[in-house]
Design a protein around this nucleic acid. Sequence first.
DNA 1: TATATTTGTTAGACTTACCTAACAAATTAA
DNA 2: TTAATTTGTTAGGTAAGTCTAACAAATATA
Lengths: 234, 234
Amino acid sequence: MLTFVLMLSFTEENYLKSLFQLTVETALKEEAGTNELAAHLGVKPATVNDMLKKLKEKKLVKYEKYGKSSLTKEGRKIAIEVIRKHRLWETFLFEKLEFSWDEVHEVAEQLEHIQSKKLIDQLDKLLNYPVSDPHGDPIPNAKGELLILHQHTLAEELVGHQCKMTGVKDNSSPFLKYVDQLGLAITKTIKVLARHEYDDLIEIEVNGKRISVSPKLAENIFVVCTACKKKSKR
Amino acid sequence: MLTFVLMLSFTEENYLKSLFQLTVETALKEEAGTNELAAHLGVKPATVNDMLKKLKEKKLVKYEKYGKSSLTKEGRKIAIEVIRKHRLWETFLFEKLEFSWDEVHEVAEQLEHIQSKKLIDQLDKLLNYPVSDPHGDPIPNAKGELLILHQHTLAEELVGHQCKMTGVKDNSSPFLKYVDQLGLAITKTIKVLARHEYDDLIEIEVNGKRISVSPKLAENIFVVCTACKKKSKR
DNA sequence: TATATTTGTTAGACTTACCTAACAAATTAA
DNA sequence: TTAATTTGTTAGGTAAGTCTAACAAATATA
Ligand SMILES: [Mn+2]
Ligand SMILES: [Mn+2]
Ligand SMILES: [Mn+2]
Ligand SMILES: [Mn+2]
């Protein structure tokens, strides 16, 4: 039995990836709206509307007029493949080509669309089957299984609790450079000392030093809390 | 002084590369025609015509109505950069990811269009600044200097002469697999024993064995002849 | 040199991915 | 429960890159 490989354009792949990131990956939601997708992709809602119809035609998204959209099983599979490629390339750039964690994303945005099963399998092998990328994001395995980390943001952590930094939400270079500057990094232990009502700053201890961080920053830092329960599964 | 980086599409890059390969790289010609380019790129002449006008506008090709086309200095520079990327990626796939020489070209066709100076510089470094790709083709260096090999095809080699295989003209997978099968490979020593008038086959000795090859095959094998003069320069 | 052939150009059309402007439906607030 | 706001859709348009069909120029051949 012949299986037809439907070739998708870069653009179509990006729409599926965005939809995945706005729904499944953030776990809290099942569907995303047209405007939301437009904002995430940096295009106009009218453009998204056209594409949703096309992707529905190809049976990759579920979409009804005036309703929210979600991925079909096949659409989700493709989205995960793109994310796997993106994160493997980021890891490659970081581990093998001396890129810093704030430089990898931009180039991986291009590399994630290269079509070659062997390329990705061999890259995975070369990197020794990594489970997370330089930003702490889980890398789907070759079967498309994705580890969902039971993490929350530093902004949500309770005063007095100690946690460990596991990743970042924002992948932009300026944000990541700022994180570096503050001495924050994945695997660092962070203790929440206080929350200041007056200006909303959060006082934390990291590297044996007390620093104050903004809620905006804290919302973009992922942690797992040793004081709370923690679990993970593929 | 600001230098503007004109961003080219994949397509535009491919036209420049083709024009380079049909002219400068084969050294014998300065210019190429519309139909010739169309055949090389696998599109129709009308399409090439439109693109030539656009690339002329961008000052990357010299083109006059009903005349042959050639690259400007800037166009040539870009073509060489694309070829450098193509051949570095082929070398990477071959050396680091266990690809065979008949598998690298197809994937390199995609990878050659990734934009990142750092990526290419680091790849070059990782591979230890290779001078030729898995097919024996010279890799332009970071300055855009390209080694022109003084090679000719096996078809042109004189009877009685001994030569060394330096590369292939055809990069297609079926051809390369056939070359493998015959026991031919880059650096192998080949002695031309005879040319048979009757059926045009060329009898050679390679790996201590006598084999007969077709002129079609011989035209796609590059050699340098130890019995003739040999020189090379950047 | 006249004619046939090859080579190159033009016009008009299609697809993809995007846009703006106008409008309609759904949701939220008064 | 009407009105305001937000969200989503439609129509029509653009640019890139491709095509076909008709035509024109250049070159080769008789
Ligand atoms: Mn990324
Ligand atoms: Mn990442
Ligand atoms: Mn290419
Ligand atoms: Mn090659």
